[in-house]
Design a binder for these strands. Sequence first.
DNA 1: TAGATTGTTAATCGATTAACAATC
DNA 2: TAGATTGTTAATCGATTAACAATC
Lengths: 203, 203
Amino acid sequence: MKHHKTIERLSLYRRLLQNLENDQVENVYSHHLAGMCNVTAAIVRKDLMGVGYLGNPRHGYQVNSLLKCINVYFEGNEANNVILVGIGNLGRALMSYFSKGNSSTTILSAFDLDDSKVNRVICNVKCLPYDEMKTFINSNKIKTAIICVPKVQAQKVADNLVNYGIKGILNFAPTRLLVPDSVFVENADISMFLDKVIYFASK
Amino acid sequence: MKHHKTIERLSLYRRLLQNLENDQVENVYSHHLAGMCNVTAAIVRKDLMGVGYLGNPRHGYQVNSLLKCINVYFEGNEANNVILVGIGNLGRALMSYFSKGNSSTTILSAFDLDDSKVNRVICNVKCLPYDEMKTFINSNKIKTAIICVPKVQAQKVADNLVNYGIKGILNFAPTRLLVPDSVFVENADISMFLDKVIYFASK
DNA sequence: TAGATTGTTAATCGATTAACAATC
DNA sequence: TAGATTGTTAATCGATTAACAATC
Protein backbone atom coordinates (compact mmCIF):
# COMPACT_ATOMS: atom_id res chain seq x y z
CA MET A 1 0.00 0.00 0.00
CA LYS A 2 1.44 3.34 -1.07
CA HIS A 3 1.37 6.92 0.07
CA HIS A 4 1.89 6.26 3.79
CA LYS A 5 4.40 9.04 4.25
CA THR A 6 2.36 11.48 2.20
CA ILE A 7 -0.80 10.71 4.15
CA GLU A 8 1.02 11.17 7.45
CA ARG A 9 2.36 14.52 6.32
CA LEU A 10 -1.02 15.68 5.02
CA SER A 11 -2.43 14.96 8.46
CA LEU A 12 0.27 17.19 9.95
CA TYR A 13 -0.35 19.94 7.42
CA ARG A 14 -4.02 19.80 8.27
CA ARG A 15 -3.42 20.41 11.94
CA LEU A 16 -0.95 23.20 11.20
CA LEU A 17 -3.43 24.80 8.83
CA GLN A 18 -6.14 24.61 11.48
CA ASN A 19 -3.87 26.51 13.86
CA LEU A 20 -3.04 29.06 11.18
CA GLU A 21 -6.73 29.50 10.41
CA ASN A 22 -7.43 30.08 14.11
CA ASP A 23 -4.68 32.71 14.08
CA GLN A 24 -6.44 34.29 11.09
CA VAL A 25 -3.47 33.74 8.79
CA GLU A 26 -4.69 33.97 5.19
CA ASN A 27 -1.77 32.66 3.17
CA VAL A 28 1.12 30.32 3.85
CA TYR A 29 4.23 29.36 1.87
CA SER A 30 5.56 25.86 1.32
CA HIS A 31 8.74 26.63 3.26
CA HIS A 32 6.63 27.82 6.17
CA LEU A 33 4.76 24.52 6.39
CA ALA A 34 8.00 22.64 5.72
CA GLY A 35 9.74 24.27 8.66
CA MET A 36 7.01 23.11 11.00
CA CYS A 37 7.07 19.53 9.70
CA ASN A 38 10.79 18.90 9.33
CA VAL A 39 10.57 18.30 5.60
CA THR A 40 11.71 20.27 2.56
CA ALA A 41 9.54 22.83 0.84
CA ALA A 42 9.62 20.75 -2.34
CA ILE A 43 7.99 17.84 -0.54
CA VAL A 44 5.23 20.08 0.78
CA ARG A 45 4.57 21.37 -2.74
CA LYS A 46 4.49 17.85 -4.13
CA ASP A 47 2.13 16.66 -1.38
CA LEU A 48 -0.25 19.56 -1.98
CA MET A 49 -0.12 19.05 -5.72
CA GLY A 50 -1.13 15.48 -4.96
CA VAL A 51 -4.38 16.57 -3.30
CA GLY A 52 -5.09 18.76 -6.32
CA TYR A 53 -4.47 22.14 -4.73
CA LEU A 54 -2.38 24.68 -6.62
CA GLY A 55 -0.52 27.54 -5.00
CA ASN A 56 0.30 30.96 -6.23
CA PRO A 57 3.91 32.08 -6.81
CA ARG A 58 3.19 35.40 -5.13
CA HIS A 59 0.93 34.43 -2.25
CA GLY A 60 1.73 30.78 -1.64
CA TYR A 61 -1.30 28.79 -0.52
CA GLN A 62 -4.59 30.14 0.76
CA VAL A 63 -5.04 28.65 4.22
CA ASN A 64 -8.77 28.16 4.48
CA SER A 65 -9.44 26.74 1.03
CA LEU A 66 -6.36 24.52 1.22
CA LEU A 67 -7.66 23.21 4.54
CA LYS A 68 -11.04 22.47 2.98
CA CYS A 69 -9.31 20.68 0.12
CA ILE A 70 -7.31 18.44 2.48
CA ASN A 71 -10.45 17.72 4.52
CA VAL A 72 -12.23 16.58 1.37
CA TYR A 73 -9.21 14.48 0.43
CA PHE A 74 -9.37 12.72 3.79
CA GLU A 75 -13.06 12.45 4.35
CA GLY A 76 -14.75 12.87 1.02
CA ASN A 77 -17.07 15.67 2.14
CA GLU A 78 -18.62 13.76 5.02
CA ALA A 79 -17.38 13.80 8.60
CA ASN A 80 -15.84 10.52 9.67
CA ASN A 81 -17.02 9.19 12.97
CA VAL A 82 -15.29 6.37 14.79
CA ILE A 83 -16.00 4.11 17.72
CA LEU A 84 -13.73 3.04 20.54
CA VAL A 85 -13.60 -0.35 22.26
CA GLY A 86 -12.21 -0.65 25.78
CA ILE A 87 -13.06 1.93 28.43
CA GLY A 88 -9.92 1.61 30.51
CA ASN A 89 -7.32 4.23 31.33
CA LEU A 90 -6.22 4.52 27.74
CA GLY A 91 -9.78 4.58 26.39
CA ARG A 92 -10.66 7.43 28.71
CA ALA A 93 -7.49 9.27 27.75
CA LEU A 94 -8.39 8.97 24.08
CA MET A 95 -11.96 10.15 24.66
CA SER A 96 -10.58 13.16 26.49
CA TYR A 97 -7.98 13.78 23.77
CA PHE A 98 -10.47 13.76 20.92
CA SER A 99 -13.10 15.76 22.79
CA LYS A 100 -10.59 18.61 23.10
CA GLY A 101 -10.57 19.22 19.38
CA ASN A 102 -7.10 17.78 18.78
CA SER A 103 -8.48 16.04 15.73
CA SER A 104 -11.09 16.64 13.10
CA THR A 105 -12.74 13.30 13.79
CA THR A 106 -15.15 12.40 16.54
CA ILE A 107 -15.46 9.34 18.73
CA LEU A 108 -19.17 8.68 18.45
CA SER A 109 -19.43 6.01 21.12
CA ALA A 110 -17.38 3.65 23.25
CA PHE A 111 -17.99 0.01 24.14
CA ASP A 112 -16.92 -2.27 26.96
CA LEU A 113 -17.82 -5.74 28.19
CA ASP A 114 -17.83 -4.53 31.78
CA ASP A 115 -21.37 -3.37 32.60
CA SER A 116 -20.13 -1.09 35.37
CA LYS A 117 -18.31 1.04 32.78
CA VAL A 118 -21.15 1.63 30.34
CA ASN A 119 -24.47 3.49 30.09
CA ARG A 120 -22.89 6.80 30.89
CA VAL A 121 -21.24 9.68 29.05
CA ILE A 122 -17.50 10.38 29.29
CA CYS A 123 -16.12 13.49 27.56
CA ASN A 124 -19.24 13.68 25.39
CA VAL A 125 -18.82 10.07 24.31
CA LYS A 126 -21.72 7.67 24.89
CA CYS A 127 -20.49 4.50 26.58
CA LEU A 128 -22.58 1.49 25.57
CA PRO A 129 -22.63 -2.25 26.34
CA TYR A 130 -20.48 -4.38 24.06
CA ASP A 131 -23.46 -6.34 22.75
CA GLU A 132 -24.96 -3.17 21.28
CA MET A 133 -21.87 -2.60 19.14
CA LYS A 134 -23.05 -4.51 16.08
CA THR A 135 -26.29 -2.57 15.85
CA PHE A 136 -24.51 0.73 16.43
CA ILE A 137 -21.96 0.08 13.68
CA ASN A 138 -24.67 -0.83 11.20
CA SER A 139 -27.08 1.98 11.96
CA ASN A 140 -24.33 4.63 11.98
CA LYS A 141 -22.37 3.17 9.06
CA ILE A 142 -19.17 3.21 11.12
CA LYS A 143 -16.08 2.15 9.18
CA THR A 144 -13.29 2.89 11.66
CA ALA A 145 -12.64 1.68 15.21
CA ILE A 146 -10.05 2.19 17.93
CA ILE A 147 -9.04 -0.85 19.99
CA CYS A 148 -7.70 -0.18 23.46
CA VAL A 149 -8.64 -3.37 25.29
CA PRO A 150 -6.05 -5.55 27.04
CA LYS A 151 -3.73 -7.62 24.87
CA VAL A 152 -5.54 -10.93 25.42
CA GLN A 153 -8.90 -9.58 24.22
CA ALA A 154 -7.66 -7.61 21.22
CA GLN A 155 -7.88 -10.32 18.56
CA LYS A 156 -11.41 -11.32 19.57
CA VAL A 157 -12.53 -7.69 19.43
CA ALA A 158 -10.88 -7.29 16.04
CA ASP A 159 -12.68 -10.38 14.74
CA ASN A 160 -16.01 -8.94 15.88
CA LEU A 161 -15.29 -5.53 14.39
CA VAL A 162 -14.37 -7.04 11.03
CA ASN A 163 -17.52 -9.16 11.04
CA TYR A 164 -19.60 -6.09 11.75
CA GLY A 165 -18.17 -4.25 8.73
CA ILE A 166 -15.27 -2.22 10.13
CA LYS A 167 -12.64 -1.44 7.46
CA GLY A 168 -9.97 0.36 9.50
CA ILE A 169 -8.61 -0.31 12.98
CA LEU A 170 -6.30 1.78 15.13
CA ASN A 171 -4.85 -0.76 17.53
CA PHE A 172 -3.32 0.30 20.85
CA ALA A 173 -3.07 -3.23 22.23
CA PRO A 174 0.53 -4.50 22.20
CA THR A 175 -0.17 -7.38 19.82
CA ARG A 176 -0.39 -7.96 16.08
CA LEU A 177 -3.94 -8.45 14.81
CA LEU A 178 -4.86 -10.99 12.18
CA VAL A 179 -7.38 -9.43 9.81
CA PRO A 180 -8.36 -9.88 6.14
CA ASP A 181 -6.35 -7.94 3.57
CA SER A 182 -9.35 -5.71 2.97
CA VAL A 183 -9.05 -4.28 6.50
CA PHE A 184 -6.38 -1.71 7.32
CA VAL A 185 -4.73 -1.92 10.74
CA GLU A 186 -2.44 0.73 12.19
CA ASN A 187 -0.58 -0.35 15.30
CA ALA A 188 0.07 2.48 17.74
CA ASP A 189 2.93 0.64 19.28
CA ILE A 190 3.84 2.56 22.41
CA SER A 191 6.69 0.40 23.61
CA MET A 192 8.20 0.55 20.13
CA PHE A 193 8.17 4.34 20.30
CA LEU A 194 9.91 4.24 23.61
CA ASP A 195 12.49 1.72 22.43
CA LYS A 196 13.20 4.01 19.50
CA VAL A 197 13.61 7.09 21.68
CA ILE A 198 15.90 5.25 24.07
CA TYR A 199 18.01 4.00 21.17
CA PHE A 200 18.39 7.31 19.37
CA ALA A 201 18.85 9.23 22.61
CA SER A 202 21.97 7.20 23.35
CA LYS A 203 23.15 6.92 19.72
CA MET B 1 19.34 9.93 11.09
CA LYS B 2 19.38 6.37 9.78
CA HIS B 3 18.04 3.00 10.79
CA HIS B 4 14.58 4.11 11.86
CA LYS B 5 12.81 1.22 10.19
CA THR B 6 15.33 -1.31 11.44
CA ILE B 7 15.07 -0.04 15.01
CA GLU B 8 11.29 -0.21 14.88
CA ARG B 9 11.42 -3.78 13.64
CA LEU B 10 13.99 -4.82 16.22
CA SER B 11 11.63 -3.56 18.89
CA LEU B 12 8.91 -5.76 17.42
CA TYR B 13 11.21 -8.77 17.23
CA ARG B 14 12.12 -8.22 20.87
CA ARG B 15 8.52 -8.39 22.00
CA LEU B 16 7.85 -11.44 19.85
CA LEU B 17 10.94 -13.14 21.24
CA GLN B 18 9.80 -12.39 24.78
CA ASN B 19 6.51 -14.12 24.03
CA LEU B 20 8.32 -17.07 22.47
CA GLU B 21 10.61 -17.31 25.49
CA ASN B 22 7.58 -17.32 27.78
CA ASP B 23 6.17 -20.15 25.67
CA GLN B 24 9.49 -21.96 26.14
CA VAL B 25 10.26 -21.98 22.43
CA GLU B 26 13.99 -22.56 21.97
CA ASN B 27 14.61 -21.76 18.30
CA VAL B 28 12.89 -19.60 15.73
CA TYR B 29 13.35 -19.16 11.98
CA SER B 30 13.53 -15.89 10.09
CA HIS B 31 10.33 -16.64 8.20
CA HIS B 32 8.59 -17.27 11.49
CA LEU B 33 9.48 -13.83 12.83
CA ALA B 34 8.80 -12.33 9.41
CA GLY B 35 5.26 -13.71 9.35
CA MET B 36 4.48 -12.02 12.64
CA CYS B 37 5.91 -8.65 11.57
CA ASN B 38 4.63 -8.37 8.01
CA VAL B 39 8.10 -8.25 6.51
CA THR B 40 10.12 -10.69 4.42
CA ALA B 41 12.43 -13.28 5.94
CA ALA B 42 15.40 -11.65 4.21
CA ILE B 43 14.75 -8.39 6.07
CA VAL B 44 14.62 -10.22 9.39
CA ARG B 45 17.95 -11.90 8.63
CA LYS B 46 19.51 -8.60 7.63
CA ASP B 47 18.21 -6.88 10.77
CA LEU B 48 19.56 -9.63 13.00
CA MET B 49 22.90 -9.62 11.20
CA GLY B 50 22.96 -5.92 11.97
CA VAL B 51 22.83 -6.52 15.72
CA GLY B 52 25.66 -9.02 15.33
CA TYR B 53 23.70 -12.21 15.91
CA LEU B 54 24.25 -15.12 13.58
CA GLY B 55 21.74 -17.87 12.98
CA ASN B 56 22.19 -21.50 12.18
CA PRO B 57 20.98 -22.98 8.86
CA ARG B 58 19.56 -25.97 10.66
CA HIS B 59 18.07 -24.45 13.80
CA GLY B 60 17.50 -20.84 12.87
CA TYR B 61 17.98 -18.47 15.79
CA GLN B 62 18.21 -19.39 19.45
CA VAL B 63 15.45 -17.41 21.15
CA ASN B 64 16.94 -16.59 24.54
CA SER B 65 20.41 -15.58 23.43
CA LEU B 66 19.05 -13.61 20.48
CA LEU B 67 16.79 -11.79 22.91
CA LYS B 68 19.75 -10.98 25.15
CA CYS B 69 21.67 -9.72 22.13
CA ILE B 70 18.86 -7.37 21.09
CA ASN B 71 18.51 -6.14 24.66
CA VAL B 72 22.20 -5.28 24.73
CA TYR B 73 21.85 -3.56 21.36
CA PHE B 74 19.08 -1.38 22.74
CA GLU B 75 20.25 -0.73 26.25
CA GLY B 76 23.94 -1.47 26.35
CA ASN B 77 23.77 -3.88 29.26
CA GLU B 78 22.09 -1.48 31.66
CA ALA B 79 18.35 -1.17 32.12
CA ASN B 80 16.97 2.07 30.77
CA ASN B 81 14.67 3.93 33.09
CA VAL B 82 12.51 6.80 31.97
CA ILE B 83 10.41 9.50 33.58
CA LEU B 84 6.97 10.73 32.64
CA VAL B 85 5.64 14.29 32.82
CA GLY B 86 1.91 14.95 33.10
CA ILE B 87 -0.27 12.82 35.34
CA GLY B 88 -3.51 13.15 33.43
CA ASN B 89 -5.62 10.46 31.82
CA LEU B 90 -2.93 9.62 29.32
CA GLY B 91 -0.15 9.66 31.89
CA ARG B 92 -2.05 7.21 34.07
CA ALA B 93 -2.77 5.02 31.08
CA LEU B 94 0.93 4.90 30.23
CA MET B 95 1.91 4.10 33.81
CA SER B 96 -0.58 1.26 33.79
CA TYR B 97 0.62 0.08 30.37
CA PHE B 98 4.29 -0.08 31.34
CA SER B 99 3.62 -1.59 34.76
CA LYS B 100 1.97 -4.55 33.05
CA GLY B 101 5.23 -5.67 31.46
CA ASN B 102 4.33 -4.61 27.93
CA SER B 103 7.81 -3.17 27.59
CA SER B 104 11.28 -3.90 28.83
CA THR B 105 11.68 -0.37 30.19
CA THR B 106 10.38 1.08 33.43
CA ILE B 107 8.82 4.41 34.24
CA LEU B 108 10.79 5.33 37.34
CA SER B 109 8.76 8.35 38.37
CA ALA B 110 6.13 10.79 37.16
CA PHE B 111 5.91 14.55 37.62
CA ASP B 112 3.10 17.09 37.59
CA LEU B 113 2.70 20.75 38.47
CA ASP B 114 -0.59 20.03 40.20
CA ASP B 115 0.17 19.28 43.86
CA SER B 116 -3.02 17.28 44.27
CA LYS B 117 -1.72 14.70 41.81
CA VAL B 118 1.68 14.03 43.36
CA ASN B 119 3.24 12.44 46.44
CA ARG B 120 1.53 9.14 45.82
CA VAL B 121 2.19 5.93 43.94
CA ILE B 122 0.26 4.96 40.80
CA CYS B 123 0.92 1.55 39.24
CA ASN B 124 4.24 1.31 41.08
CA VAL B 125 5.32 4.72 39.77
CA LYS B 126 6.30 7.40 42.27
CA CYS B 127 4.49 10.65 41.51
CA LEU B 128 6.57 13.66 42.52
CA PRO B 129 6.22 17.46 42.40
CA TYR B 130 7.45 19.09 39.21
CA ASP B 131 10.12 21.09 41.01
CA GLU B 132 11.85 17.90 42.14
CA MET B 133 12.31 16.80 38.53
CA LYS B 134 15.71 18.39 37.98
CA THR B 135 17.23 16.70 41.02
CA PHE B 136 15.65 13.37 40.14
CA ILE B 137 16.99 13.44 36.58
CA ASN B 138 20.49 14.24 37.78
CA SER B 139 20.69 11.76 40.62
CA ASN B 140 19.22 8.92 38.56
CA LYS B 141 21.06 9.83 35.34
CA ILE B 142 17.78 9.78 33.39
CA LYS B 143 18.20 10.32 29.65
CA THR B 144 14.68 9.68 28.35
CA ALA B 145 11.33 11.30 29.16
CA ILE B 146 7.71 10.93 28.12
CA ILE B 147 5.67 14.12 27.71
CA CYS B 148 1.91 13.81 28.14
CA VAL B 149 0.97 17.27 29.33
CA PRO B 150 -1.57 19.45 27.51
CA LYS B 151 -0.51 21.01 24.23
CA VAL B 152 0.08 24.50 25.63
CA GLN B 153 2.53 23.30 28.27
CA ALA B 154 4.49 20.84 26.14
CA GLN B 155 7.18 23.21 24.80
CA LYS B 156 7.93 24.61 28.26
CA VAL B 157 8.27 21.10 29.67
CA ALA B 158 10.52 20.11 26.76
CA ASP B 159 12.74 23.15 27.40
CA ASN B 160 13.10 22.15 31.04
CA LEU B 161 13.83 18.53 30.21
CA VAL B 162 16.52 19.51 27.71
CA ASN B 163 18.10 21.87 30.24
CA TYR B 164 18.15 19.09 32.82
CA GLY B 165 20.05 16.77 30.47
CA ILE B 166 17.34 14.69 28.76
CA LYS B 167 18.46 13.36 25.35
CA GLY B 168 15.32 11.63 24.11
CA ILE B 169 11.66 12.64 24.34
CA LEU B 170 8.54 10.65 23.51
CA ASN B 171 5.96 13.37 22.92
CA PHE B 172 2.24 12.63 23.16
CA ALA B 173 1.17 16.29 23.07
CA PRO B 174 -0.29 17.22 19.68
CA THR B 175 2.35 19.82 18.90
CA ARG B 176 5.83 19.93 17.38
CA LEU B 177 8.59 20.53 19.92
CA LEU B 178 11.56 22.77 19.23
CA VAL B 179 14.68 21.14 20.66
CA PRO B 180 18.41 21.16 19.85
CA ASP B 181 19.64 18.74 17.19
CA SER B 182 21.33 16.70 19.90
CA VAL B 183 17.95 15.74 21.37
CA PHE B 184 15.81 13.08 19.69
CA VAL B 185 12.05 13.60 19.69
CA GLU B 186 9.51 10.99 18.65
CA ASN B 187 6.00 12.32 18.20
CA ALA B 188 3.31 9.79 19.07
CA ASP B 189 0.80 11.57 16.94
CA ILE B 190 -2.55 10.02 17.76
CA SER B 191 -4.74 12.08 15.46
CA MET B 192 -2.33 11.36 12.62
CA PHE B 193 -2.77 7.64 13.21
CA LEU B 194 -6.50 8.03 13.11
CA ASP B 195 -6.39 10.15 9.95
CA LYS B 196 -4.30 7.45 8.36
CA VAL B 197 -6.66 4.66 9.35
CA ILE B 198 -9.67 6.60 8.10
CA TYR B 199 -7.94 7.29 4.79
CA PHE B 200 -6.79 3.75 4.11
CA ALA B 201 -10.04 2.24 5.37
CA SER B 202 -11.92 4.09 2.64
CA LYS B 203 -9.19 3.79 0.00
C1' DT C 1 10.94 44.90 -13.51
C1' DA C 2 13.09 42.08 -9.68
C1' DG C 3 12.47 38.61 -6.54
C1' DA C 4 10.52 34.96 -4.32
C1' DT C 5 7.70 31.07 -4.98
C1' DT C 6 5.51 27.88 -7.92
C1' DG C 7 5.14 23.17 -10.56
C1' DT C 8 8.10 19.82 -12.64
C1' DT C 9 11.90 16.97 -14.06
C1' DA C 10 16.25 14.46 -13.33
C1' DA C 11 19.53 12.73 -9.88
C1' DT C 12 20.31 10.85 -5.53
C1' DC C 13 19.55 8.27 -1.68
C1' DG C 14 17.84 4.47 1.08
C1' DA C 15 15.13 0.51 1.81
C1' DT C 16 13.11 -3.71 -0.02
C1' DT C 17 13.21 -7.68 -2.93
C1' DA C 18 15.08 -11.37 -5.67
C1' DA C 19 18.51 -14.64 -6.35
C1' DC C 20 22.04 -17.79 -4.96
C1' DA C 21 26.19 -20.09 -3.04
C1' DA C 22 27.39 -21.73 1.61
C1' DT C 23 25.96 -24.09 5.64
C1' DC C 24 24.28 -27.53 8.93
C1' DT D 1 22.80 -37.04 1.51
C1' DA D 2 18.68 -33.94 0.79
C1' DG D 3 16.45 -30.03 2.20
C1' DA D 4 15.59 -26.00 4.41
C1' DT D 5 17.74 -22.00 6.12
C1' DT D 6 21.61 -19.07 6.43
C1' DG D 7 24.52 -14.74 5.01
C1' DT D 8 25.36 -11.92 1.04
C1' DT D 9 25.16 -9.60 -3.34
C1' DA D 10 22.79 -7.39 -7.23
C1' DA D 11 18.40 -5.50 -8.90
C1' DT D 12 14.33 -3.14 -7.97
C1' DC D 13 11.44 -0.01 -5.98
C1' DG D 14 10.05 4.24 -3.77
C1' DA D 15 10.92 8.48 -1.57
C1' DT D 16 13.78 12.55 -1.09
C1' DT D 17 16.65 16.08 -2.94
C1' DA D 18 18.61 19.22 -6.28
C1' DA D 19 17.95 22.08 -10.05
C1' DC D 20 15.39 25.11 -13.02
C1' DA D 21 12.02 27.28 -16.22
C1' DA D 22 7.47 29.41 -15.50
C1' DT D 23 4.72 32.41 -12.82
C1' DC D 24 2.82 36.35 -10.32
